[in-house]
Design a protein around this nucleic acid. Structure first.
Lengths: 236, 236, 236, 236
DNA sequence: CATGAATGAGCCTTCATTCAT
DNA sequence: AATGAATGAAGGCTCATTCAT
């Protein structure tokens, strides 16, 4: 019988009589690790955490599974490493956009623009971060929640700076994340998320345009409050 | 062949000393199906789609696995049935809140209040819908995306009605879901989502309060536009 | 949610407000049993013993599974009952064809004709008997082997009568089924089997024609045909 | 997530008191595949396709199930691989027996002898091929049918060569497998099958003897034997 | 006579993980 | 640095069979 019935061994390189088939060139560890993370992000974004298999990832980066385990430890650690790397990249990208001296509104706009730009360019990273990571069990979710908190905290600071007296500081004894500013920041980040997904679904547009769309909603709403505008039910 | 193939619980009819396995009582199909869906929602929200096992779900509703399969077909179909039922419930709850005659802003506020109320009351349903369902493969994602579209479309209509001239109607030939109103609706729904999660994380508050928080951001932002306000970069 | 998601209940009869939906008319036991056997033969011939499910069979004869078990006992017994009934029919059909007074060759020819006629008319019965039954475990195989032995014994008798001295009687002390006559009978039955399957595969032809084909081989032999010998019914 | 997900044999490295599970030694793939096929043929011939379990087969070749699946794909593919290998062996064995130059009758006799020899030596292979394989669903049946066709075609050619004018060539427009030669070949193969089974059942005898028995029937015919004709090898 | 509801048991399959080379 | 060979454990699904009505 033909013994290649089930080609588990993908002898990518052709028949090489003399040399022992150097399937993967010797590559220094740091670089290999990045290749592995690249492959993992690709696969995780494509299939989701659970549906992705280590075999698939190993094949995607043309490395044997023992190497994966040697360098990254376990599937869960691998996923966490992906999350961390991509979250860091996102935070750096957004952080670089903000120039400290600027007016708060402009700073927010630039941050949003950077965010939408990042999502457009790193589609897979964002999918892993925002679609897949949320459905996980505790350890991984905490990782991504931490990244999200970092972003949200920055926005919260902006909001508070922008809207001074209109958004009251947390009352003494109140959990800091329960104040109005925190809520506003949550809403802004959530809206940005949704718009990022929307752009991915409906086709690309310049990040500035998406940022403008969002600013139109949230900023024009915030500024009048500086002048004392408040929302009330009609009955009040 | 072995004639003792199925030597099931023969002693079950014997002395009833310590309640020898409480065989599920006869329950009509329609009712059992609901129990199964209840249990499934609970388990899926707790563990996520992949990590949840049919054994776990069967145990949760005190029924054997074959019944699950007989009534609901497969794990994926079961999940889809959960999604459908919960999405329908959510849509009904939000839909009932809107009284057609009302001013658009008030209608939006009521809808949001109903939404936050639903999430507070059906915590698990919402977790399944918004955390777990997004990370799935095509068939399930489409189901939940359809529900989300339904909600978003309602909001889009409201937005368009509310903000008449400030939000231009889609230009002829433009895909309807690419217009500014659609973007605004996406942002609102995303913000509501995020706030719902935030409330779940940080502890309960009256739905009216959460709705007010969100209206403060998005509505006070929309109204000034009726008077011609527009967002511009400072440089413009 | 629609509770008919998985229509296990096939309410064959339409909505019947008053009467309690008489899904299966009261039918006396003997008749029901025949219907069940009919259905079982159909399903077994279609799917094979193992692949066939009791659900399938129950549905095929529009009866609930408990009835099947009440009347026929178990899957294995049901299969055995099928085998027995069909084998009996076959033996009767072939037996009726032989008129005792005739010359052995003619008797063989008539038996073969009857056999090919039976297979053509009871396609499914034959498939169950000769394709499915052989692959079973002990108890069932014995049933069909017994039937086959019955047929083979008759042929052996014919052969011995026909070929008196040419086929020596079993030597004393020799197992009776080891003699030349037994071997010849086995060959004939095997050849008939194969031809029956061949006709089923390649399309029908008159049973007399198939019988003639076989008689040409076993009665005349191949070598004499080289010299012009032909098989003809005695009347020709 | 539980980090003890795979707490496999940790104590395996400990004291080796009583041979703590003989982990299968490293064996190259090609060899392992053959071992697996050997085991599978044994098990399939013993229990039949459906009744055989992959656990049983894995145990029979002292390998874990995952290896079975890695190398052979699935139960069905494994069965098909068995069929293919054994059929090839049979065809080779029979093919080698025929020396082209010989007279047709002698060639047939040698082929039959080889066939009965093969069956005697590879009892299990033959059981799988001829008892089990016929009761399967389409994909597998086609595999074995193809092998059978190959054998039958060879016999058909012999028959046609042997019996020149006595067996008319297919009439124009007639499907080639419907001619008399094809029918004769079917009968011969069927008879050989039956005799092989008979020998297996009743106890061994030299393959030459069984071949002689069959040649007596098909080559000489029954009627001529009434008048004293006997089959002899040409050399006798 | 007749059936909807229910289940224990087992099978095929796959996955994360590791050892020996 | 790198990998082919190997496995324990578990998960989804189905089946023959039986109560309770």
């Amino acid at each position: 019988m033909r013994s290649d019935a089930h080609p588990a061994a993908k002898s990518a390189t052709g028949a090489r009589a003399t040399a022992p088939a150097p399937r993967a060139k010797r590559v220094p560890r740091a670089q290999r690790e990045q290749q592995m993370l690249d492959a993992a992000v690709r696969v995780f974004s494509r299939s989701g955490y659970h549906a992705a298999s280590m075999d698939e990832i190993a094949e995607e980066c043309a490395v044997s599974k023992p190497m994966l385990y040697l360098y990254l430890g376990s599937k869960e650690e691998l996923f966490a490493a992906c999350i961390r790397r991509e979250a860091d990249r996102l935070i750096v990208a957004v952080g670089q956009a903000a120039e400290p001296g600027l007016e708060a509104g402009e700073q927010l706009r630039r941050g949003l623009t950077a965010f939408f730009g990042f999502v457009a360019e790193h589609r897979e990273s964002w999918i892993v971060l925002y679609q897949q990571a949320r459905a996980q069990g505790e350890p991984v979710v905490e990782e991504v929640a931490a990244a999200r908190r970092q972003v949200t905290a920055a926005v919260t600071a902006l909001v508070r700076r922008a809207a001074l007296d209109s958004v009251p500081p947390p009352r003494p004894g109140e959990r800091p994340d329960r104040g109005e500013a925190a809520a506003v920041a949550q809403a802004i980040v959530g809206a940005a998320d949704a718009l990022a997904g929307w752009v991915l679904d409906t086709g690309p547009e310049p990040p500035e345009e998406t940022a403008r769309r969002l600013m139109s909603v949230i900023w024009i709403g915030l500024e009048p409050r500086l002048h004392g505008a408040r929302y009330r039910k009609p009955s009040e």
